Simulated assay, not measured.
Amino acid sequence: MNKFSPLSVETKLIKVIHVRVATGSGDEGDPPRMVNFYYCPDGQLLACYDPLLGQPDSAAQSSLQRTSAMYMPGYPDYG
């Protein structure tokens, strides 16, 4: 039986910069937590994950990634 997955086109091991940021005011809607950001070595934001916003593929996570990218020094402004 062929175990080929049509979703897997290519797999590579790459270097990334992982930044963990402590955030949250401690209020009911904003608990203390660690938010993870992943960048290319040149500073381009690849992904981010805030456990308060749900699964990594959620719309809220995508919004956080777009917003975070706009505030990175040297990152192009798509706004």
Rank of each mutant, 00 (worst) to 15 (best):
G43E: 13
P41T: 10
D27H: 02
P6Q: 07
F4K: 12
L46H: 02
N36Q: 15
M70T: 06
Q55R: 11
V9W: 00
L46F: 05
R20T: 14
N36V: 12
Q44F: 10
E10H: 11
M72H: 02
A69Q: 10
V21K: 14
E10S: 06
P76R: 01
Y78R: 06
L64V: 06
P31W: 06
V9D: 06
M72V: 15
P56M: 12
S5F: 04
L7G: 01
I17D: 08
Y49C: 11
S8E: 15
S58W: 04
V9I: 10
N36R: 14
Y78P: 00
E28H: 03
G24T: 05
P73L: 12
T11F: 01
K3P: 09
K12L: 08
M72R: 14
H18V: 09
Q61K: 09
S63P: 00
F4R: 12
P56R: 11
G29D: 15
G79R: 15
Y39C: 04
Y71I: 12
D42H: 08
M72G: 01
L46C: 02
A22C: 03
S62Y: 05
L46I: 15
Q55A: 12
N2R: 08
Q65A: 14
T11P: 00
P6E: 06
P41Q: 05
P6I: 07
L64Y: 04
Y71L: 10
D50W: 04
A22Y: 04
M72L: 13
A47K: 10
Y78H: 07
D30V: 10
A60R: 15
M70Y: 03
R20H: 09
Y78I: 06
L52W: 04
D57H: 12
N2W: 02
K3E: 08
L53H: 07
I17P: 00
R66G: 07
P31V: 02
P31C: 01
A59L: 13
P56H: 09
K15Q: 13
F4Y: 02
M72F: 03
F4G: 09
S58G: 12
L7H: 07
P31R: 05
L45D: 04
